[in-house]
Computed example of a mutant assay.
Amino acid sequence: MNWDAHLRLRHVRTFLEIARAESVSIAADRINITQPAVSRSLKELEEMLGTQLFDRVGRGLRLNEAGRVFQAHASASMVELMRGRDRLAKDGDLTTRLSIGVLPTAATNLLPRAALTFREEMPHVRLHILTGPNWLLFNQLRDGILDLVVGRMPEKDAATGVTFQQLYIEDVVLVCRPGHSILSKRTPEDHIAEHTLILPPGGAVISQTVERYLASIGLPEMRGAFETVALPVGRKIVGNSDALWFISRGVVADELAARSLVAVELASPLLSGPVGISIARSAPINVERSVFAECLQRGV
Rank of each mutant, 00 (worst) to 15 (best):
A158L: 11
K236G: 02
N109S: 13
P274V: 04
L148C: 07
H11W: 08
L256A: 02
N240L: 09
V162T: 10
D190R: 11
S99M: 06
I18W: 03
A114H: 14
I31N: 04
V238Q: 05
G58W: 12
V38D: 05
A37G: 06
M1K: 06
V102H: 05
A21G: 03
G58D: 14
F246P: 01
H11E: 03
A158C: 07
E170N: 04
G161Q: 09
G299N: 13
E211I: 00
I285E: 12
S272Y: 00
H128C: 13
D93W: 15
G50Y: 07
I129L: 08
N139A: 15
F292E: 07
P133Y: 03
T187C: 02
E121V: 07
S241G: 06
P269C: 01
L130S: 14
R97V: 15
S75M: 11
V102S: 06
I129V: 14
R59K: 13
A280Q: 04
L94N: 09
R177A: 14
L9F: 06
I285A: 08
L130I: 12
H6I: 11
T51P: 04
R152I: 00
A293Y: 08
T187L: 03
M48K: 06
I145N: 10
Q166D: 12
A267T: 04
L16F: 03
L94H: 09
R259V: 04
L167F: 03
S260L: 00
D55V: 05
M153W: 04
D93R: 15
F226T: 03
Q166K: 15
E255N: 02
D86C: 12
R281S: 09
A230C: 05
G132C: 05
L214F: 01
G58P: 13
T105D: 06
D190A: 10
L16D: 05
H128F: 12
I247F: 00
R113S: 10
D4E: 15
G273N: 03
G203I: 08
G224Y: 00
G50W: 13
I237Y: 02
L296M: 09
S75N: 13
L130E: 14
T95V: 14
P104Y: 01
P188N: 01
R249T: 00
G202W: 02
V12G: 10
A193S: 12
P188D: 00
K156N: 11
M153E: 12
L42G: 04
